[in-house]
Write a protein that binds this DNA or RNA. Structure first.
Lengths: 302, 302
DNA sequence: ATACTAATGCTCGTTTGGAGCATAAGTATG
DNA sequence: CATACTTATGCTCCAAACGAGCATTAGTAT
């Protein structure tokens, strides 16, 4: 008799409000976690349907855009011998922020992954992380190489897409607390990668952010988190929030406009102290996802 | 008591020989299929380990590069009521072609997906496909739009990456035989998308080819299917075989060389009737996958 | 009126990509 | 041996895309 398998659906749900990217989380006995629920093999015709059902029931939010991310199936080192083998299929979802039901809340992405926010100054933790990685790598050229490339040690080039690689490097180097929890060890004090989620959900979240940042460069998925009308500055700030970097303002407009992603509505946004901005909306061709007009996002690796 | 779940691991294994891309398949009662086997929840520590085990036992081939593709979990319309719910996790693997064990064989990708090979002339089936899609779309603007974008009806722009979208469009339009098999109907004669694989494996294969073509544009994964040394022309032909398009020769070399993907070995390849070519090899930095030097593949959407 | 702020418009130089000409170094043929 | 033919390799030219910054405009605050 073969052992049973249980399968859950995990949702990395992203929104942006007040120019800050947020992750929808639910409270569990183990701390904050990403919305997640078991597949009902009889009732759920598709995995995506099951996912939407669970997200709605746990958070009260209806998700729009959904995309499969990754299936995690490694054996849990801490499982009880008789427990069923557990797999989880993770999804990325984009929504406009809404009030979640009790027990659910929006968390700040950059509290979770503080080293990922390079919008203003390089994040303060990064200094610490680099020092500790340097110590961890020692003279090992492979370790040094990976640390340099992923954390932009040399030449100051930061690649926003390498979210997952960075997380995994920190895990390997023992700089995130999950590492100690998974091995049932006591974590050393003052780790740079302290704030965590239950289970392997910070890894799942990192996978989602990496995918989202990558996708932004070739598909205009931003519109999923934007209100129907917005100013170009709002759009830019939203993109910047997601990729964690600042962009050149004039060039950003040029790209958006000549990429024919948006069109003016003729109306003006309430002024915030300077010249009033026109309100724009996404062109319907963009919304229906058919072509592949990406928001090109140049200046992304400088 | 919850119904049981069974989970298989499917491998889309790609090689290139004689400038033709090939897919590794095994013989089953339902025809050719991709290598596949059930996860043993107790024995297999990771999904990838299970995959490698099954591939080796079914084909005798050891796969090198492996990457998770997608998890298929829709309920099978034709399943028996008491059968366990079946899911499959598909992987993409790249290998240098080797003799498989009996019962396994290399199939030609472009016999399977004949409309995907645009290396010389546009493939002959494409005419037929376009006509039939035109009839299917009728006056529906959405259908017309998707057909046009995916099959390059207007402006002659063919996007090699849209392999999966094209397959799904053909499926939806009833131009591939699987569609009729899945609905237990008799297929009409003379379908353009005739040659098929068992189960949903042609869809799985299309997913793999799409991913591979996309990945080639930003990661130098070609080297996984190349011998240790090769001429630049061989490299170009291999890439062309995979993306199904011809590339400008001089520009290709420029990209490869200034992308610092390869280095000369100083030795010459046996002449084939013209000026002898230098043999190249991939730089070790490229092989160890660390940086992100993609083979840029410009001229890809013209 | 003047200072300040943010939006918008435009230029300019650099880099990248697409296309083709020119030359080099072999083989096949008279 | 001269000539044609083939393929490899080197280089140029032009157009489009990108990065950076200056200039102007249209509001609000003092």
């Amino acid at each position: 008799m073969r052992a049973p398998i249980s399968l859950s659906l995990d949702a990395v749900i992203v929104a942006v409000t007040d120019d800050e990217p947020r992750l929808l989380a639910v409270e569990t006995g183990e701390g904050w976690a990403v919305p997640s629920g078991l597949l009902d093999p009889d009732a759920d015709r598709t995995l995506e349907v099951a996912l939407r059902r669970w997200v709605a029931s746990q958070t009260g939010c209806e998700v729009g855009y959904v995309e499969q991310l990754y299936t995690f199936g490694d054996q849990d080192r801490r499982r009880e011998p008789a427990a069923p083998r557990h797999l989880s299929v993770a999804y990325l979802a984009l929504v406009r922020e809404a009030q979640p039901s009790p027990g659910a809340a929006w968390l700040d992405w950059y509290s979770l992954l503080p080293w990922e926010d390079h919008r203003d100054t390089p994040p303060p933790v990064l200094r610490e992380i680099r020092d500790q990685l340097d110590r961890w790598a020692g003279a090992d050229p492979d370790r040094r190489g990976r640390a340099a490339i992923n954390f932009g040690l040399e030449s100051g080039s930061w690649d926003p897409i390498r979210v997952l690689e960075r997380y995994e490097l920190l895990y390997e180097a023992g700089l995130v607390t999950e590492r100690y929890r998974d091995d049932a060890l006591e974590p050393p004090a003052g780790l740079p990668g302290a704030p965590e989620l239950a289970y392997d959900h910070r890894r799942v979240a990192a996978t989602g952010l990496a995918r989202l940042r990558g996708k932004l460069t070739y598909r205009p998925v931003v519109f999923e988190v934007m209100p129907t009308t917005f100013t170009l500055t709002q759009l830019q700030h939203t993109v910047e929030a997601l990729i964690g970097m600042r962009l050149h303002k004039q060039n950003f407009r040029r790209l958006v406009e000549q990429g024919e992603l948006v069109e003016g509505t003729g109306t003006m946004a309430p002024s915030t102290g300077g010249r009033p901005a026109e309100r724009f909306q996404f062109r319907s061709e963009v919304v229906s996802e058919r072509p592949r007009p990406g928001m090109r996002l140049p200046g992304l690796r400088g």
